[in-house]
């Protein structure tokens, strides 16, 4: 077994373990952390396929940005694990069908060599920077899809702003007249909350 194969098996073992833990971990923060590990390891495998731009983009976008925000949300949530597990058996058939479908699709793509489908295998000659190549393709042959994707992202961004926008604050000047007449019960509300115990 040469060195590259050994590295591949090492990375795949970590990837499979991490992916399994994503769906089996009870604590959502641990699940998110394992997802991050899975992305990072995938980046490593892509790097072995000489797709350095995609590998680095995966790590910058998913590990560096998306998962950080994900962790933010997951850490803030007070998740009741028992309630999440309640619907397990009800959703199992649908989940199993979807999972099987995905496995089938992946098998078809990855096994296309055995089904005699001609596969466009990219061979990278030495000394060709695939970052430069992808960049050149994006602004020549694929400029329209590229612009379209950018517009879709822009729409998503505007939609997110619209959903959370609560109007402009016109002025931050406070009126001392109203400040003087403020009472404690206008500002503070005391709530009775039952004690939570794990």
């Amino acid at each position: 077994m040469d060195f590259q194969t050994a590295v591949f098996f090492f990375l795949s073992a970590i990837l499979i373990f991490a992916a399994l833990r994503v769906i089996t971990a009870r604590n959502p923060v641990y699940a998110a952390l394992h997802l991050m590990l899975a992305f990072f390891t995938t980046g490593g495998i892509w790097l072995m396929l000489q797709a350095e731009f995609l590998a680095i983009a995966l790590i910058v976008v998913y590990v560096g940005a998306v998962m950080v925000l994900f962790l933010f949300v997951v850490m803030m949530l007070d998740i009741n694990i028992d309630r999440i597990r309640e619907g397990f058996w009800r959703y199992l058939p649908l989940g199993a069908v979807l999972g099987l479908l995905m496995v089938l699709e992946m098998g078809l793509v990855l096994g296309s060599k055995y089904f005699q489908v001609p596969l466009a295998e990219a061979t990278v000659p030495a000394g060709v920077s695939n970052t430069r190549e992808i960049g050149a393709l994006l602004v020549t042959d694929y400029v329209l899809p590229f612009e379209l994707a950018a517009v879709i992202l822009l729409v998503g961004m505007i939609a997110a702003v619209v959903l959370t926008f609560r109007g402009v604050k016109k002025s931050k000047i406070s009126n001392p007249n109203t400040q003087v007449f403020v009472k404690a019960k206008d500002r503070i509300r005391v709530l009775q909350m039952p004690v939570e115990k794990d």
């Binding site: 952390l33 991050m36 350095e52 731009f53 680095i56 983009a57 790590i59 910058v60 590990v63 560096g64 940005a65 950080v68 962790l71 933010f72 850490m75 920077s129 970052t131």
Partner: peptide, 21 residues
Amino acid sequence: IDASLLYILAITSMGVYGVIL
């Protein structure tokens, strides 16, 4: 390496995990 700037971007963006975790 050819994409050293991208590599730096990717690696330094991981630094935030130590802080959050």
